[in-house]
């Protein structure tokens, strides 16, 4: 089956600056695809390009089988979009906001009649119908924004950092809604810079400095040679004074990479060096309570990928 979203070497330049550099990926029907990356890495630009908003995009891009260079208008009709700014008209009521978005998506009156109660029920907004959008709290505003983005039954839903700046409970609620939509067959494309959100996606793309570094399920990413090189091991160390220990560990010749996660230190090092690492630390006077092999988390994966890039940029490294 043809993927719902597909790009081949998608490149976007703003003057001399390359915002998106030869990005290739695809998203299958009904899947939740997460594009993870720091601010300014090109995530929003990719969404805009997929909706045909960027006229000078190079390379191939298709959404729902439609060419992003030619069929922008047709694409826009069949997708929904929600940004972190909520994009609501605060003077209008919940009902009027929904009517407005139904209107600009050219929905017929009968269709609105059927669809509106569905959307309201899904987002739990039914009792707020006559409330002004400006009077809603952050979490409810976001639900309304989602309701407005799906009122026209889009086949693909783009969410641009939908949870930036809202509380953890509202974030959870939003993700529950996204899972429901995904269950109904809606393809969801979400950008984020939160690791835990990326972990909820079926597949993840990692974009860094305009380049798509890796794409795949978490399982696939773990198998990448740069994540788990031959003769390597990933260890978790629990010890006292982790910050001081980290400084020492970074200097060890057989350690390739080390980061602090809460109270523990994650280390990527040569295989079979567990005993040696433990001994070296104890010789320095650190008290080790645990040292054990771990499976790389998504964060480990991205730290490693980012470090690889930085080291390449610097022209060397370990």
């Amino acid at each position: 089956m043809e993927p719902v979203i597909l790009t081949k070497e998608l490149t976007i330049k703003f003057g001399k600056f390359t915002a998106v550099n030869k990005v290739t990926f695809d998203v299958k029907e009904g899947e939740i695809f997460g594009l993870l990356g720091p601010n300014g890495s090109g995530k929003t630009t990719i969404i805009k390009a997929l909706c045909g908003l960027i006229t000078n995009a190079l390379g191939e891009g298709k959404v729902l089988g439609l060419d992003i260079h030619k069929d922008s208008f047709k694409i826009k009709k069949r997708i929904g979009y929600m940004s972190q700014k909520f994009s609501l008209y605060e003077e209008l009521t919940v009902n009027e906001n929904l009517d407005f978005y139904a209107g600009i998506y050219q929905m017929k009156k009968d269709a609105i009649k059927v669809r509106k109660p569905e959307v309201l029920k899904l987002t739990g907004l039914t009792s707020y119908l006559e409330r002004r959008a400006g009077a809603l709290s952050g979490g409810w505003k976001q639900r309304l924004a989602l309701a407005c983005a799906i009122i026209h039954e889009p086949e693909v839903l783009f969410l641009d950092e939908p949870t930036a700046g809202i509380d953890p409970v509202a974030r959870r609620t939003l993700w529950d809604l996204l899972f429901k939509l995904s269950g109904e067959g809606v393809t969801i494309f979400v950008t984020t810079h939160y690791m835990d959100e990326a972990e909820r996606c079926r597949r993840v793309g990692y974009i860094y400095l305009s380049n798509l570094i890796a794409v795949g399920t978490i399982g696939e990413l773990r198998q990448l040679p740069e994540i788990s090189p031959d003769n390597s091991a990933r260890l978790e160390i629990l010890c006292n004074l982790p910050s001081e220990a980290l400084v020492f560990i970074k200097e060890l010749p057989y350690v390739w990479e080390s980061t602090i996660f809460g109270q523990s230190i994650h280390v990527l090092c040569e295989a079979n060096k567990r005993e040696q690492l433990s001994k070296d630390l104890q010789d320095q006077g650190f008290n080790i309570s645990q040292i054990s092999p771990i499976i790389p988390s998504l964060e480990d994966i991205f730290v490693t990928l980012t470090n690889n890039i930085i080291n390449k940029e610097l022209g060397g490294g370990k």
Partner: peptide, 9 residues
């Protein structure tokens, strides 16, 4: 909201 309008048909 303008962003949304531009992304709408």
């Amino acid at each position: 909201t303008l962003e949304n309008l531009y992304l709408a048909p």
